[in-house]
Design a protein around this nucleic acid. Structure first.
Lengths: 221, 221
DNA sequence: TATATTTACAAAATCGATTCTTATATATAT
DNA sequence: ATATATATAAGAATCGATTTTGTAAATATA
């Protein structure tokens, strides 16, 4: 850090790094984020870190208690359900609109990303336990985002993006998955429905897909 | 400003003031928000204003161009339509959930706020033109928020709150209304449907209500 | 004249230091 | 023993100054 490259700002860079660190599970949920410590770690001033934390707090990934400082967002099954419900609502609608408006280029991108996703391993063996690979995580996100990318409503897309971040948070922090389901089949079916312009079916599959994700995370049966 | 009261922070206060100023139409859409000027105006340091602007930028009321500064959000008919679409989706769902979960206290609050709203004049004559009264604006907001207050999903409610701010922005900045419709009848019908626990009807009225609001603002026929 | 380079300036971004808050520990009083 | 008051230290919030960036005017170059 400490040096600016091109036209970006330190605040922007620190915000991105901090966000991806939090989403990648670098910090425990609820653990304090001390401004001065982070500033030392990133080798920037407190103002920069403060601005980054303020951004993340407004987005809900970080909590802010006035005069008490910042902490990583906490996790609860109840909140995950609420996030899934909101995502289900907004991403389904975005998906419908995307299917209705997508052109050939969009179709091609969906196919390309589905292929990429299907060829990328989801887990890695590290220290006896399964860990989600960051690369897969990234492609998975791109795939889901591409599905709704043709939605012509940026306001809706922005909501979807933020809700995605919130669910992504849970993917890394929750108790380790008991079962490993085959997401590949679901992604394939979803892609087929989308390319076949079958909105109802695509939405149906999508809703089941994210519902199941939540269930597995907290091991509901 | 310059002095802190109780447990709140300067940043919080400035954020609130700035937000309500923007929503009340104090600044032109797209006009620059110079940090140092605002700091002088509020009698605080630049850091405080910067933090406030960062928050508002993350919420979409302010635009931020890296190394170029902040400006008030711009307004377009297209964006208003997108906001209305997102609001329609989220607030309708929140309304359904609220109607399904609301208890007696909630019912009473809805009745109380509807009464208050119905007894408050919407416009005031100032310099030949109609201006929205801030007091009405505030009660109107409270009324709509109370309708969905019993929704048990805070994530959804937060989305609704933000989208409300974005539409509120348009209420003050758009070209002056040609026609003055009677919102009272609509609010009455909406309240009746809600208290009668008729979700479908309530949502139907609500959607028409906000659709009409957008149409009038940009004078669509 | 048109284009490129330099300079000057205003405002943004960043910094390091100072002032406030809160929580904890210690002391004093009931 | 419990409650209240005081001291202290860690960290948040704020400040004013410094550095960097982008814009526009001025100058130089083709």
């Amino acid at each position: 850090m400490a040096k600016r490259n091109g036209s970006s700002t330190l605040s922007e860079n620190v915000t991105k790094k901090l966000r991806s660190d939090i989403l990648a599970g670098q910090y425990e949920p609820g653990s304090p984020l001390t401004v001065s410590e982070l500033a030392k770690g990133f080798d920037v001033s407190v103002a920069v870190v403060r601005e980054a934390l303020t951004r993340l707090a407004t987005q809900g990934l970080v909590l802010q208690n006035p005069n008490y400082g910042f902490s990583v967002k906490t996790a609860s099954e109840e909140e995950l359900n609420n996030i899934i419900q909101a995502r289900s609502l907004n991403e389904s609608e975005a998906l419908r609109l995307s299917i209705a408006h997508g052109d050939l280029t969009w179709e091609s991108n969906v196919i390309a990303l589905h292929h990429k996703l299907s060829q990328t391993p989801e887990f890695k063996e590290s220290n006896q336990k399964l860990a989600v690979r960051e690369e897969w995580s990234c492609i998975h996100r791109q795939f889901h985002y591409e599905l709704i990318a043709a939605c012509p409503n940026p306001v809706l897309l922005d909501i979807c993006r933020r809700l995605w971040d919130l669910s992504e948070f849970y993917r890394h922090y929750s108790p380790p998955q008991q079962q490993v389901r085959d997401g590949r089949a679901e992604h394939k079916a979803l892609t087929d429905a989308v390319l076949g312009r079958d909105s109802d079916r695509a939405v149906e599959i999508f809703k089941a897909h994210i519902r199941l994700t939540a269930d597995i995370l907290f091991d509901n049966r």
